[in-house]
Design a protein around this nucleic acid. Structure first.
Length: 121
DNA sequence: CCATTGACCGGCT
DNA sequence: TAGCCGGCCAATG
């Protein structure tokens, strides 16, 4: 039996899996595409409870300001930075240039996974 | 049921 | 750039 919250979390993971290599998305962006308005914090929750960190590209999710969410000294911060650098996403002083690297799903992708994120911008 | 907590967000100083 | 603050809302105790 699948509860609502499990389905919700799975949707969040699915959306994150759609972020292409070399791009990043914000927590709020993932929430909206997943059909959870104002659900940025839920995205954080879903990520924190990731068991198989190899299946989901969690490192491509950062704050809307471009900052990595982890504390700058932490091991997690370092790992996320490394993973991003590995796919040519520039991390400078713990932040990413959102103008350059933010994921912008096109029509095909939205059709592929219908959502309520048409009116961004 | 109430209070606190978050891998958040946006506006304002 | 940095901090503060109110808003947000599911999960947790």
């Amino acid at each position: 039996m699948t509860t609502d919250r499990q389905a919700r979390i799975r949707r969040i993971w699915d959306t994150i899996c759609d972020i292409p290599q070399g791009s990043v998305a914000s927590y709020g962006q993932i929430a909206e595409i997943s059909g959870i308005p104002h659900g940025a914090r839920q995205v954080g929750y879903a990520l924190r409870h990731l068991s198989d960190t190899h299946e989901v590209p969690w490192h491509r999710v950062i704050q809307t300001s471009g900052r990595i969410a982890f504390d700058k000294g932490s091991a997690q911060f370092e790992e996320q930075s490394q993973r991003l650098l590995m796919e040519n996403v520039a991390v400078i002083s713990g932040r990413v240039d959102m103008q350059k690297f933010r994921w912008q799903p096109d029509l095909d992708e939205l059709l592929w996974k219908p959502s309520s994120a048409w009116d961004e911008q």
